[in-house]
């Protein structure tokens, strides 16, 4: 038995109609993987890990807000000076940003591709109401929480990175603390930050648990059934990141910082 160039042909007994085209196998396994839903899930999981790392360190860095403007702005400058003089100023920051942009694009592209596959897999919906047993609210709303986080991210960038005048009229490049404090002191903006982070929390909860399943570390070979550790980790991570992030607008509005 040798590996073949194509998956085996369907016999005439198979009367179900395929929803996808048969492809010759690519000489590059990554092409086959990206075509398959299982491979796309791997991409979702691995880019998800990268984005989780980002939101975690972003949250940790933001905690400098509680130390005051000097520490916060010093940290912002440190990010631009990262790996200087090995690399010129802001190059390390841009390399990380490029990595993040790639992870975002792949994550969203796979989510889109998987949604298209799933729509095709059930063209006729159930005509009577479904009674779901297991699925959590966070899992069912991944698509919507993801879209909310994506839109919030655009707003967040316009507000505090690009400093678009219509969004943040007092924006001064380099004055990270003052920009943030001004922005969060406007209650509609603070509300947007709270909503965006709530969506992020729910997205992280299902995503964090889910990625272990996708990369197979829940396999019966390595993991006893119904292991609560990963559920707990997912809940803890989501609450930590979303909770700390939500504390900033609340504290600014309450006048504790700013």
């Amino acid at each position: 038995m040798t590996a073949t160039k194509e998956p085996p042909a369907l016999t005439p007994d198979i009367t179900s109609r395929p929803i996808a085209e048969r492809h010759r196998r690519s000489p590059f396994p990554v092409v086959d993987l990206y075509r398959s839903s299982v491979g796309k899930k791997w991409v979702m999981a691995l880019t998800g890990v990268a984005l989780m790392g980002f939101v975690f360190f972003h949250m940790v860095g933001n905690l400098k807000m509680y130390l005051g403007p000097v520490d916060f702005n010093h940290y912002a400058e440190f990010l631009r000076e990262l790996l200087v003089p090995i690399l010129p100023r802001t190059v390390a920051l841009w390399l990380m940003r490029i990595g993040l942009i790639v992870a975002f694009v792949l994550h969203i592209h796979c989510a889109y591709g998987l949604t298209v596959i799933n729509r095709k897999a059930r063209p006729t919906k159930y005509q009577s109401p479904r009674d779901y047993v297991a699925v959590s609210w966070a899992a069912r709303t991944m698509r919507w929480s993801g879209i909310i986080v994506g839109l919030f991210l655009l707003f967040h960038l316009a507000d505090l990175t690009w400093g678009i005048h219509a969004v943040n009229s007092e924006f001064v490049r380099g004055e990270a603390y003052q920009n943030l404090a001004y922005s969060l002191d406007r209650w509609p903006v603070a509300l947007l930050y709270i909503i965006g982070n709530l969506a992020l929390g729910f997205h992280l909860y299902h995503g964090t648990w889910s990625l272990f399943q996708t990369v197979g570390s829940m396999s019966p070979r390595f993991n006893p059934r119904h292991n609560p550790i990963r559920r707990g980790f997912a809940a803890g991570f989501a609450i930590l990141v979303a909770g700390v992030n939500i504390s900033f607008p609340i504290m600014v509005l309450a006048g504790v910082v700013g």
Partner: peptide, 24 residues
């Protein structure tokens, strides 16, 4: 094992949707 896995998964992909880890 490896030929089986590749062939069965890719045949599954012809007909079915993707897993979102709902657990239903």
């Amino acid at each position: 094992r490896w030929k089986r896995t590749e062939d069965m998964v890719e045949t599954m992909e012809l007909f079915f949707g993707s897993c979102t880890n709902y657990g239903e």
